[in-house]
Design a protein around this nucleic acid. Sequence first.
RNA 1: GGAGGAAUGGCAGAGUGGUCGAAUGCGGCAGUCUUGAAAACUGUUGAGGGUCACACCUCCGGGGGUUCGAAUCCCUCUUCCUCCGCCA
Length: 423
Amino acid sequence: MLQIQTIRDKKEEIIQALTKRNLDASPLVNGVLDLDEKRRATQTQLDNTLAESNKLSKEIGHLYKSGKAQEANELKAKTSALKEDSKVLSEQLANATEELQTLLYQIPNTPHDLVPAGSSEEDNEEVFQEGTIPVLAEGALPHWELAKKYDLIDFELGVKITGAGFPVYKGKGARLQRALISYFLDKNTDAGYTEMQVPHLVNEASGYGTGQLPDKEGQMYHVTEDNLYLIPTAEVPVTNLFRDEILAESDFPKRYTAYTPCFRREAGSYGAHVRGLNRLHQFDKVEIVRVEHPSKSYEALDGMVEHVKNILRDLQLPYRILRLCGGDLGFTSALTYDFEVFSTAQDRWLEISSVSNFETYQANRLKLRFKDENGKSQFAHTLNGSALALPRVLAGILENYQTPDGIKIPDVLVPYCGFEVID
RNA sequence: GGAGGAAUGGCAGAGUGGUCGAAUGCGGCAGUCUUGAAAACUGUUGAGGGUCACACCUCCGGGGGUUCGAAUCCCUCUUCCUCCGCCA
């Protein structure tokens, strides 16, 4: 969430910036400022009451010690009124704080200057494109047909044991996916990201920390018995490793990578565009996460973009990079680049990575801070990106590398697969 | 799952009702000494709220209670340790 201090100092700028999200934030912002004032006034009253009460208690202690029980008892009577007051005040304070929190949770991150205005994905700005779109032979198939033809993925079997959106990968299909995971992890660790294996279930506090809660509760599978959530992305457990931490400046940069399955309910999204691997309830992803000094975070974002580019060059997949417009930008992000691979067989772009800088928005919720050169605590910046999401990369490879004689495996993956062609 | 024990500052570890935000040691930082370093010595060193700055308030695993007053007593939850059971 936004920092209350920033809202106090830069109210108009914030409202202005949020118009890019097509949001009139002035009622929210004004509400926040009113509540903030109310909260502080209540806090001051409570503090004064407690100070008075603390003082009396000390006196009572001294009086008892010096044997003046009579006088002590007189003072005791005075404290009961203060006690009543402080009880009422602390309830008011708790209410004001909670209301304030609720409002703050409703304000999305302020978009970076580079974020283009716009209302939907139509308005995203293409900033880069690279790679040759292959010309496929007559009769080229979409990946779900290829998966069936070569017995790589069984969607029906997944329906049988779980439901739609939970595919079963088989034989060379499973092996290719595993090869991609290993390859991505190797690329990431070579680039300085430390590999982590993290839990696939997280608690409520973690959900709040990275911003999945309370806004996107319906997107996560909730294990109510234990009040745990299946992770929608490794971003959640990995970023939460730093919850409640105060780093030293010398700790930067922090770079992590993790492979995890991801679980998303994706309620209500059905249709032609979600066929095959295009949208799943469970999928694999290799994530990169960085925690950075505020002055270095955009440099870091650019570095992550370059890194993902390198992977796609390695795989020789045609791709483009979009700068998300205000209307398409995630709630917690300040600036996001989406990577899309062109699928020739489907004749459409498939999103395979999303790289974002959250600035202090998550750090504020996480209480992730560092000591600056003056010894003062400041919020760090958090970033993350997919490197990469598996299903659509798999789809892109199957579709773009198909030949009448089978599917060729990209050169960099051959050592990981142990075969050169699927036929 | 059963029985017992524990949770205090970056770490270790005192503190069982008032003078405790908290001894002491280690670590960190600054200084003295030194050509430099080490050692030694001196000082300093938790977080949040609040204030122009002070004052002041809150926090001793989380929540609740007793009391004029709680790190200290009671209840509850969580986590960790030991023993037993089960088990990949």
